[in-house]
């Protein structure tokens, strides 16, 4: 197996607030390998975005990485600040949900992409212009030459998201982190952006981390999935076996509660209750108050288990797994 690009080891991110210390990320460990697409699924407050903000070094005050390590190709990003700033943005690039607020409204898109090229690739002048045009063509912007001096607001939402992706790709990253990249877009536009991400992944051999709440997107795009709940990864598995046989009751509940468009419209199954308040988590397993399988054991923290190859699980009472279900065979 190839060495991972990005590794998180027992990452803890806390926020100091007037209501007390809030652990937004409570010991997350994960690895992203070259060329793979990892989905991080979670609801609001699950810590999925904060985890990625920590990777990019942009956790806002009053939050701070309190414990654990983030490493890139085996070297810690937290230990060396100067080098880390180079790696972030060059080797790891990020695309945000809202392209309008992530692009500077006062500068043309050509200038903004050129800036990335100059900063991370040392490319300037005519070469930068040529490369910018190439990048914009790559992300599917027709006739980019005359549009280099356009300002972000002169593009539609989907176009802006494409420009954001072009900007992220300008530094030729090995890993692209996409935080809810299509949430602000309409479905027909979302499908186009998903197509683009798939195409880029296949053409450039990009590794992608897709942070989302949408299980449909995950099923469409990802190789492997990590499900986050209340600051922890409760289940990791490859996408086939996760959707076939979710082991964590939360994953199972989430899948059942997500209506598919081709479902028979019977009554939706639900998960009881609401996502927990991060400042007031239940002891032990944070999901236990909403969990149909919970019992007294769940009041203490569940251990990390590996019920099947490539699957990690944090649960005392997992859903029964089908025996020897070969994920690859199921696909064909």
């Amino acid at each position: 197996m190839t060495a991972p690009l990005l590794e998180l080891d027992d990452l803890v991110v806390t926020f100091t607030t007037r209501r007390g210390r809030i652990e937004a990320v409570r010991g997350v460990s994960l690895a992203v390998r070259p060329g793979e697409t990892l989905g991080i699924v979670g609801e609001s407050g699950s810590g999925k975005s904060v985890t990625m903000q920590a990777v990019m070094g942009v956790v806002d005050s009053p939050g701070a990485v309190e414990h654990g390590d983030i490493s890139w190709r085996g070297r810690s990003l937290l230990a060396r600040e100067g080098e880390a700033a180079d790696i972030r943005g060059r080797d790891i690039a990020m695309v945000f949900q809202d392209a309008m607020t992530s692009l500077d409204p006062l500068f043309s898109i050509g200038t903004q992409i050129g800036e990335v090229l100059a900063r991370h690739r040392g490319v300037t002048g005519a070469a930068a212009r040529a490369r910018t045009i190439e990048l914009l063509e790559l992300v599917g912007i027709a006739n980019p030459g005359p549009r280099l001096h356009y300002l972000p607001h002169q593009f539609s939402g989907g176009m802006r998201q494409r420009i954001m992706i072009a900007m992220a790709l300008a530094a030729e990253p090995a890993l692209l982190i996409a935080d809810e990249p299509t949430t602000a877009l309409d479905v027909t536009v979302q499908a186009q952006i998903v197509d683009l991400l798939i195409e880029l992944r296949d053409r450039l051999g990009l590794a992608i981390v897709l942070v989302t709440h949408d299980l449909g997107l995950v099923a469409e795009l990802c190789d492997r999935v990590a499900v986050m709940y209340a600051g922890r990864i409760v289940e990791t598995a490859d996408v086939w076996s996760l959707f076939d046989a979710p082991a964590h009751p939360y994953t199972a509940g989430l899948l059942k509660a997500t209506p598919a468009i081709d479902d028979l419209p019977e009554r939706l199954e639900t998960i009881e209750g609401s996502p927990p308040d991060p400042s007031d988590l239940p002891s032990g397993c944070a999901f236990r108050l909403r969990c149909p399988r919970a019992d007294a054991a769940c009041a203490s923290a569940p251990p990390l288990t590996h019920p099947a190859a490539g699957r990690d699980l944090l649960c005392w009472h997992p859903e029964p797994l089908p025996i020897a279900a070969s994920p690859e065979a199921a696909h064909v």
Partner: peptide
């Protein structure tokens, strides 16, 4: 207000 609190706590 939260930022001020975090600063003073630090």
């Amino acid at each position: 207000r939260e930022k001020r609190f975090a600063r003073s706590a630090a």
